[in-house]
Every structure is written in C-alpha cells, then in structure tokens.
C-alpha cells in the first residue's frame, strides 16, 4: 500500500547556494489513519519541511508524492487544480496571523469550498458549520471575527478550515503548544477522531513531547536539517537511541516533581 504522503530526499537551501542547507535530504511518510509526530528544536527545519511539502517553500531537491502521485513538480494552473482538491492541508502555527482579521469565522472556514466552487453559498455555509461542529466549536461563533475569539477557539477554527475541504493529509504546525491543558486535550481528541473515523494521515509538528506521546504512532526527530531518529512513538520516547533525542526527552518537565537536574549544557 502506498503512503498518503511520501516526501523523499527533501532539500531546501538558504538562498541559491547548495552549501547552506536548511533541510538536507529529509524523508517523511504518513499512511492513512496514521499520526506522525515531527519533533525538533527551533531552527531544526521542521516548519520549513511542512512548508516545502505544501509548496510554500522552494524545494531544491527531492520529491513529494500524495497517494503515489508526484505533486512537487506541479506549477501554475496544474498546481492550483491540485490544491483545489484539498487533499493536502496545512494548519499554520499562529492562528491569529493565519486568519484574516476582517473575515468572519464562518467565511474563513468556508473559504476552501468557495475557492473550489462547491455547490451554492448555502451548501458551503452548511459545510463550514459542520466543520466547526467537528472541532467542537459552537456554530454561533461563526459570525465573529477572529479577534473576538480565545486562543484555543482560534486554533480550532484553523483546523476546521482545513477539514472543510476533506483532506487526506493534514500537516499541523505546533497545534497545541500555545494552548492550556484543557484546550490541548480537546484538539488532540479531534485529531485522534479524524485519524480513526476519516482515516486522515496526520503530520503533527510539536515540541510538546507529552502530547505526541499520547497520540502519535510514529515519531521523526529532526536535528539541524537532518532526520536523526525515527520509529514507533513508544520506542523513540521510551528508549531513544540518538543522543539528541535522549537529551530532548530528559528535558521534559513532569508534574510529579523536579527532574533529576540535567547536565547543564549551554550554547
């Protein structure tokens, strides 16, 4: 069976020189119904990888396939046609900046179907209402502008916007790191349901290892533009092999009390 998302040998350079690479031969696959956690520190290239996959960052080498079909070579009208299928969706890290401040929540969520030209306006609104309900938001919020929502609500609106076009692959950039525990749990449950009920392939970028522990099937660790470790979530989190992954996991604070003071490394 081919994976829903398959990225191979992805390279993104800084400027036009192959010398300084933000990503250096990174591979990432996600099967339908699978949640893949992508972890790494600031500057590791995890956001760039997601942006390169959806075509927002230039891909200097490598291929991206969706359901076996290469999409990384698409340009112009072909690319637009592919994007309108809504098969791959990207949820930005900062919901406040990724929602137009002058567009109501419902219109934002209905934007994908509107661009695609699905049905009539009333059908698209119904679709948007359904998407809002899917992420546990009261459709009555639909008339509000994004500025009048809480951070947790805004994050869910951006997820609803992606769901309104029925994606096969969902890439989320730090969807829970800015949320408090109750909102985080809510978002994680929505993602878990999407994976089970609609078999969406989900790539979740996060530095919150705790969230990934509860939900990810596999984990990919990115460090300075390279994949340093990859495997089933339980294996990577409980028995990390790579020194960087070990350091990452040892750093996670626990509610059960102070960590054994970790060797203070400074940089």
């Amino acid at each position: 069976m081919t994976a829903a998302l398959e990225a191979d040998g992805v390279e993104v350079w800084l400027g036009r020189r192959a010398k300084s690479r933000i990503l250096d031969g990174v591979g990432l696959t996600a099967r339908s119904g699978e949640i893949v956690g992508l972890i790494g520190e600031t500057g590791s290239g995890k956001t760039t990888l997601a942006r390169a996959i959806v075509g927002l960052a230039p891909l200097h080498a490598g291929t991206v396939r969706v359901d076996g079909t290469p999409v990384s070579g698409l340009r112009g009208a072909e690319l637009r046609r592919f994007r309108r299928t809504g098969r791959v969706q990207y949820v930005f890290q900062d919901p406040l900046r990724s929602l137009d401040p002058d567009v109501t929540v419902l219109d934002s969520v209905a934007e994908g179907p509107a661009i695609r030209g699905d049905g009539r306006a009333a059908d698209r609104r119904a679709r948007a209402v359904a998407a809002l309900e899917q992420v546990g938001l009261d459709p009555a919020l639909g008339d509000r502008l994004p500025g009048r929502l809480s951070g947790g609500q805004r994050q869910r609106v951006t997820i609803a916007r992606a769901l309104a076009v029925d994606p096969r692959v969902l890439l989320l950039d730090e969807p829970v790191s800015a949320l408090d525990a109750a909102n985080r749990n809510h978002v994680l449950r929505v993602l878990d349901r999407l994976r089970r009920e609609r078999e969406v392939a989900i790539v979740m970028i996060s530095h919150d290892l705790g969230s990934l522990a509860g939900i990810a099937d596999r984990i990919v660790v990115l460090y300075r533009g390279r994949v340093v470790e990859e495997g089933p979530a339980a294996r990577v989190l409980l028995e990390p092999e790579d020194p960087y992954t070990q350091r990452l996991i040892a750093s996670v604070p626990s509610i059960d009390g102070p960590r054994p003071t970790y060797a203070r490394s400074t940089r």
Partner: peptide, 26 residues
C-alpha cells in the same frame, strides 16, 4: 495540591494535564 487536589477546579486542571504526557506512555 498536585497529588490530592481538594478543589474540583484544581482536580480538573490536574486531570487535564495528566491526560496526555510522557508518563502515560509507560
């Protein structure tokens, strides 16, 4: 407070926190 929260709100806060986490994995 974190191990035996007395107030229902604190209990919910702690339960929410514990719902996901590295500790649960084991």
């Amino acid at each position: 407070v974190l191990d035996e929260p007395a107030d229902p709100y604190t209990r919910a806060l702690v339960a929410d926190h514990r719902e996901y986490g590295l500790d649960r994995l084991a």
